[in-house]
Amino acid sequence: MAILFMSTHAGDAEDYLPLLKGHLPDQDIRVWPDAVGDPADIEIAVIAVPAPGVLAGLPNLKAVLSLWAGVDSLLGDPTFPRHIPLARMVDPLLGVDMTHFAIHWVLHFHRGLHRYAALQGRAEWHPVAYPEAAERRVGIMGLGVLGSDAALKLASLGFAVAGWDALAKSLAGVETFAGAGRLSDFLKRTEILVVLLPLTPETRGIVNAETLAALPRGAFLISLARGGHIIEADLLAALDSGHLSMALLDAFRHEPLKADHPFWHHPKVIVTPHVASHTTPRTAAAEIAVDVRRLLSGGMPRHLVDVTRGY
């Protein structure tokens, strides 16, 4: 039995291999593409983004452990073996990073900090007024592990927080909405929208002309999940019309964002290069090792993905 490690990010193998071997010293860990060996030996794949067809070419594969929280890249491979258990990464530090990033930008827009650069450029000493936190209505779109943590932490800071998800959820101190029929109600009460949804066929393009129009005029968008959630032309139109005040965008349909993309130079867009959170090798390797041991003992990995839903 062998474990295949595969990542498209340069340096990942060098970071992960010593850690994984430290946790799993008796296991045969191979690295794609240089040290795969006999594909029939591979029973567990630890992977971020697969080269098309690689997983389908492993005849004895028993489970796939994603290096990322999102699995849309894995399921986007038409040859992905959907009968095999797929587990997503739940790295505790990834959640901490994402919540910190969400809180930072909610506070940034709540306090009107985006306005001070222009004031400084005009040498204007002009404090920007802002409401009490309890009067600021923040909405978290997506109440999975990451979205729920961000919602709870923002609520603990005194914000009026609501969350929307496809499935009904219950969070202390957070008003929750569920299903397509309640999306409009959720958006109408949301002044700062934080998108933390998985990318699925149902959520692709969910930030569009209709949903943006449902937000109150002057709302803010914080997009931290996947670029595929956004219809870019609709977002630009909402910004240009003044319906949206600002947008913070951390993820894009095509990355890196091309130099001629209008987001770079739009006065109401802040671009960050997909840095809201990242998987930390030290903690992620420990999580992977737990699931490998579960598989070796005949069990199942944690955090299993429903491949029909995409999360």
Rank of each mutant, 00 (worst) to 15 (best):
2 A>Y: 08
6 M>C: 15
8 T>R: 15
8 T>K: 14
9 H>A: 14
15 D>E: 13
16 Y>R: 09
17 L>E: 01
21 K>C: 06
22 G>I: 04
22 G>M: 00
24 L>Y: 02
25 P>F: 07
26 D>H: 06
27 Q>P: 00
28 D>F: 04
38 D>S: 10
40 A>S: 14
42 I>W: 04
44 I>Q: 05
44 I>K: 02
46 V>A: 06
46 V>D: 05
48 A>C: 10
50 P>T: 11
50 P>Q: 13
53 G>E: 09
55 L>Y: 05
56 A>Y: 01
58 L>M: 13
60 N>K: 13
61 L>D: 10
63 A>T: 14
67 L>N: 06
68 W>F: 14
68 W>T: 15
71 V>F: 02
72 D>N: 12
72 D>I: 07
75 L>R: 06
82 R>S: 10
85 P>M: 09
87 A>I: 07
89 M>I: 07
95 G>Y: 08
96 V>W: 01
97 D>V: 03
97 D>G: 12
98 M>D: 01
98 M>A: 01
99 T>P: 02
100 H>C: 13
101 F>G: 00
108 H>W: 12
112 G>E: 10
113 L>E: 06
114 H>L: 00
117 A>L: 10
119 L>D: 12
125 W>G: 04
126 H>D: 12
127 P>W: 01
127 P>E: 10
129 A>R: 10
129 A>G: 12
133 A>P: 05
133 A>S: 14
134 A>P: 07
135 E>R: 15
136 R>W: 05
138 V>F: 01
139 G>N: 06
140 I>V: 15
140 I>M: 02
144 G>E: 03
144 G>P: 02
144 G>I: 10
146 L>P: 03
148 S>L: 03
149 D>E: 12
150 A>C: 14
157 L>P: 03
159 F>L: 01
160 A>F: 08
161 V>R: 00
161 V>E: 02
164 W>H: 15
167 L>M: 11
170 S>F: 04
176 T>H: 08
178 A>P: 03
186 F>I: 13
186 F>C: 12
187 L>S: 06
190 T>W: 06
193 L>I: 08
194 V>K: 00
203 T>P: 00
205 G>C: 09
208 N>A: 12
209 A>H: 13
210 E>N: 12
211 T>Q: 04
214 A>S: 15
216 P>G: 15
216 P>Q: 14
217 R>W: 07
223 S>K: 00
229 H>I: 12
230 I>M: 08
235 L>I: 09
239 L>Y: 08
239 L>A: 09
240 D>Q: 14
241 S>R: 13
242 G>T: 13
242 G>D: 11
242 G>F: 08
243 H>N: 07
246 M>R: 10
250 D>G: 01
253 R>G: 15
256 P>T: 13
258 K>N: 11
259 A>I: 14
266 H>N: 10
267 P>R: 04
268 K>F: 03
276 A>K: 03
277 S>L: 03
279 T>I: 11
279 T>G: 04
280 T>S: 06
285 A>W: 02
286 A>Y: 04
287 E>I: 13
289 A>H: 07
295 L>S: 06
295 L>P: 02
296 L>N: 11
300 M>V: 08
300 M>R: 14
302 R>Q: 15
303 H>D: 15
304 L>G: 09
306 D>W: 03
306 D>T: 06
311 Y>W: 14
